[in-house]
C-alpha cells in the first residue's frame, strides 16, 4: 500500500521545514502548499532531483520557510 508521508519541523522561531516522501511527481508540492498556506508565508522551495522524474517512484522535496511571520 503506497504511503504518503510529510514531516514538518517547526522551530522555536516559527520557521518551517517540510519533507515529503511517497508522492508522485508534483503532487508533493500540491500537498505541501495545501497544508502550509503558500499565500501567507514566504517560502523557499527546493525540489530534489526526484521531483523532476515522471515515474511512479518516491520523491523527496523540501519546503523551508524563510522565517516566522508574526
Amino acid at each position: 500500500m503506497p504511503e504518503e508521508r510529510i514531516t514538518i519541523d517547526i522551530d522555536d522561531e516559527g520557521r518551517i521545514t517540510a519533507k515529503t516522501s511517497g508522492f508522485y511527481g508534483t503532487a508533493c508540492m500540491d500537498a505541501l502548499i495545501e497544508l502550509l498556506d503558500k499565500d501567507d508565508v514566504p517560502m523557499v522551495i527546493k525540489p530534489t532531483d526526484d521531483y523532476y522524474q515522471n515515474q511512479k517512484n518516491t520523491v523527496n522535496n523540501i519546503i523551508r520557510q524563510k522565517g516566522g511571520k508574526l
Partner: peptide, 29 residues
C-alpha cells in the same frame, strides 16, 4: 496544519525534537 492535515485524511503524530516541534503526517492509499 494539524487540522488541515486531518481533514485531508492524514494521521498526525507530534513529537518534540530539540528546539523543534515535529509533525509526521501519514496517509495510506
Amino acid at each position: 496544519i494539524i487540522a488541515k492535515a486531518e481533514s485531508k485524511g492524514y494521521s498526525v503524530k507530534e513529537t518534540r525534537q530539540g528546539d523543534k516541534t515535529r509533525l509526521v503526517l501519514v496517509r495510506t492509499h
